[in-house]
Design a protein around this nucleic acid. Structure first.
Lengths: 248, 248
DNA sequence: CCGATGCTTCGACCGGGACCGAAGCAATGC
DNA sequence: GCATTGCTTCGGTCCCGGTCGAAGCATCGG
C-alpha cells in the first residue's frame, strides 16, 4: 500500500485531462480578483494602458505587469505598443463572450455599452483625420456601424470587408468596384483610436471613406489641427447612410 | 510618500470591483485542474458520484470532497443524495454554456454528445418503469425529445411543460386538457435516471406518458422485474411521435 | 450487532503565486 | 546631456489553498 494514490487513483483517461488542464489554465487566469477587474475594465472594447489597468485593479504597476504577462500568455488579451505606452485590449471577441458567460453565472450585472466622449478636446475627440482616414468618435462610430450591419468584421488586429459590405460601399459610390485589388497596401485594417481607445477603419477602405466624406462636404477641415467639423449636410447623410446621430 | 500604495493606487470605483470579484470567484472555482476535470466529466449532462469524480480528477476522495464543496458553494454543481451515494451534476444549462465558452478559448475540443448505453443489464437499461413513469434509455430519450422540440424545459431540479408542449400532448391523447390542474402532485418533474444518470420525466405528465404507452401497447411489462419490452408497434409509434429510434 | 462502503471533517504539510520595494530599461521632454 | 514617465525584471516575504492520512458519520448488508 506504499504507492498509495499512484495505484488506486489513476485517472481513467488521459485525453480528457489535457483539455481540462487547458481549461483550468484559462479559468485560473480569470480567477483572480485583480485580473478579473482588469478584464472587466476591458469589456467595453477599449484598449487601456498598463498603469490604467493597475489602477482599476488597485495594485501597483509591478504587480499589474506580471498579471498582464500571464493574461497575454494564455491569449486573453493582446497588446499594442505606441511610444512609451502599451495599450492592452481583449484578444478577440470570443474572449469577451467567454467573460460574459462567466459573469452570467456570477450573478452578473451586464457590461455598460461604452461611456460616451469625455469633456475635453471636444473638437478633436468628435472627429479628426488620422493620416488619410477618419478618426475620433466619428471614425469609431462608422466602424461600429459597418460591423453592426454585417458589412465588416473586426477580429483582433485584422479586419475584413464582407462581400455584401463591398457591394454596399460600391453602390454608394464610396468605393470603386476594383479598388485595392492590385495594391500592396492593406485594404481594410483596424487602427486603434487614441481618444476613443477603440478601432476605427484605416487602409484603402478608410481612405476612401474619408475622401468621400470630404468630397461630399460631409465634413470640413478645421483650423490648423486635424480636427474636422461635421456639416449640416453631413449630419443628415451620416444618419441616412450609417445610422449615426452626431450630437450638435 | 509613506502611505505609498494606499494613496497612489486607490481604486477608481468600488462598483466594478464587486462584479469583478464575483467573476473571479466563479472563474477560480473552474481554474484548478482537478475541478476542471470534474466539470468536464459532467459536461455530457450525466450525474456522477463523488468517488467517480475523484477518479476522473485523479485525486483522493478527501480532496475531491473539498473541491465539490467549493463547486457547490459557488453554484456550479448541484447534488442529489440517494442512499449512501451523492450524485453531482452541473447546476443548470447556463453553467454548461459557460464552460463551453471557456473551452473554446482553451483551444477546446468539443464535448462528446454522451456515450450510449453500456453492455450490462440490457433489458433494464433499455426501458423500465420507475414507480408510475418510464425510465431507462427510453425514458431519457423521451425527455430529450420533448426538450428538443421545445415542449418542455428542464432546468436544474425543476421542469416545465410549455404551452405548445401541453397542446401537443393533448392532441395526441396522452394528456387530458385539464390534467393536473387541481392536483397537489407535481405536474412535470425531472427524476434522475439510475442507469443513464440523466433526467427522465416524472410527475403527472410522466405517469400519463407511461399509461398511454401501456394502453397503446407501445411497451409491455416483462418478467418479474420492472423491465419493459418495446413492441414492434411501439417502435413505429415512438419514431413517429418522438423521433426516437429504438435499437432492436 | 458488526463490518463494508461512500463520503466528509480535521490536522498538518508544502508549494505556487500574489504582492511590493528596489533597480533596470526604454521613450519622451527639457 | 539629465530628469521624468511608463513599464518590466529581480529578489524576497507571506499566505492561500491543494494535498493526503487518519478519523468520524451516515447507509447498507449481513
Amino acid at each position: 500500500m506504499l504507492p498509495g494514490r499512484a495505484l488506486r487513483w489513476r485517472p481513467t483517461e488521459g485525453r480528457q485531462m489535457v483539455t481540462a488542464n487547458g481549461m483550468a489554465e484559462v479559468a485560473a487566469a480569470v480567477g483572480e480578483p485583480a485580473r478579473a477587474a482588469m478584464l472587466t475594465a476591458l469589456m467595453d472594447g477599449r484598449a487601456l494602458t498598463a498603469s490604467e489597468l493597475a489602477r482599476v485593479a488597485a495594485i501597483t504597476p509591478q504587480t499589474a505587469s506580471s498579471h498582464l504577462a500571464r493574461l497575454i500568455a494564455v491569449g486573453l488579451i493582446a497588446v499594442e505598443r505606441q511610444g512609451r505606452h502599451r495599450y492592452h485590449r481583449l484578444a478577440n471577441p470570443a474572449v469577451a463572450q467567454m467573460i460574459e458567460g462567466i459573469m452570467q453565472i456570477a450573478g452578473g450585472i451586464q457590461v455598460r455599452p461604452r461611456a460616451r466622449t469625455g469633456p475635453r478636446d471636444l473638437a478633436m475627440r468628435a472627429a479628426r483625420t488620422c493620416y488619410d482616414h477618419l478618426a475620433g468618435q466619428l471614425g469609431v462610430d462608422i466602424a461600429d456601424a459597418l460591423q453592426a450591419r454585417g458589412a465588416m468584421v473586426i477580429d483582433g488586429d485584422g479586419a475584413l470587408l464582407t462581400a455584401s459590405g463591398r457591394a454596399w460601399m460600391c453602390d454608394m459610390g464610396i468605393l470603386k468596384p476594383d479598388a485595392g485589388k492590385h495594391s500592396a497596401r492593406p485594404f481594410c485594417r483596424p487602427c486603434l483610436d487614441w481618444s476613443e481607445r477603440r478601432p476605427h477603419i484605416a487602409g484603402v477602405l478608410g481612405a476612401a471613406i474619408c475622401t468621400h466624406a470630404l468630397e461630399q462636404s460631409w465634413v470640413r477641415r478645421r483650423e490648423a489641427n486635424r480636427a474636422l467639423e461635421i456639416t449640416p449636410k453631413g449630419r443628415i447623410a451620416l444618419k441616412a447612410t450609417f445610422g449615426i446621430s452626431c450630437a450638435g
